[in-house]
Design a protein around this nucleic acid. Sequence first.
DNA 1: TGCCAGGCTTCAC
DNA 2: GTGAAGCATGGC
Length: 276
Amino acid sequence: MIIREIQDFSLSRIADSGQCFRMNRLDSGAYSIIAFGKYLEAKPLGDGRFAFSCTEEDFDKIWTDYFDLSSDYRVLNTLVPPDDTFLLAAINYGRGMRILNQDSWEVMVSFIISQRKSIPAIKTAIETMCVHFGTQMVFEGKTYFSFPSAGHIAGLSCSDIGCCSLGYRDKYVTAAAQSVARGDIRFEDLMEADEAAAKAALKTLYGIGEKVANCILLFGLHKSNAFPEDTWIKRIVDAEYAGNFPKTLYDGHLGIIQQYIFYYARSREYQKCRST
DNA sequence: TGCCAGGCTTCAC
DNA sequence: GTGAAGCATGGC
């Protein structure tokens, strides 16, 4: 167990932001996170202090990068025009949000599954997949399952993964697994490639279109300027920006801007604003 | 019980 | 190139 003081860091907002699906609030007030085959519990202690159930070494080697703790998110405030009250409210509402640096393969599968599914349903499907096909592990007496590898999933049929409630997406998941296992898609190459080239490569995969490709770029490949446009974002862009969001103002930061908008758009706070 | 969900592919035209 | 239809299933 280690204690760290971290500014602009909200576990609850990250957990509810729809970018990760294996981070859950526990009765203790801590959050469990399963990533890169590791299990972590993180608990807010107040005054910007947090407890993490890991060693100093793991925190520095794994979790600092995972939570994107080296980035300063306050710079965004200087970019927003004062008359954009919607975005200012969204950023204020989502303060402490961060873009996690997750495992590329896990992000790819998670967002293939996400299409036309609610966030609770996505979490259920992913957890079921991990229980059936991941590796069982134990941390301080708690059993958890790692995310299954591409090689493992590539060897399964659609009927094999039928237990995971993937619906018509089962064939997309197996096809993606086979592409990754064969080496047709190499994440390390995509990280090096520019955003447009990486997106084009992702969209060659069966079941990956514009939106899912953008999610993989942003959440799985560290492309901070990717801007996934789902039904929520389109709704907001239509309602608040007359169908045309000023992307050029936020060059290099579109990913986190999109995330603030998504988080705020789904909130009761914004729904209440809209109804009055 | 019915509607909707962090969309994509297929098929007309 | 564009737009509509069809898609599986869970959660509220």
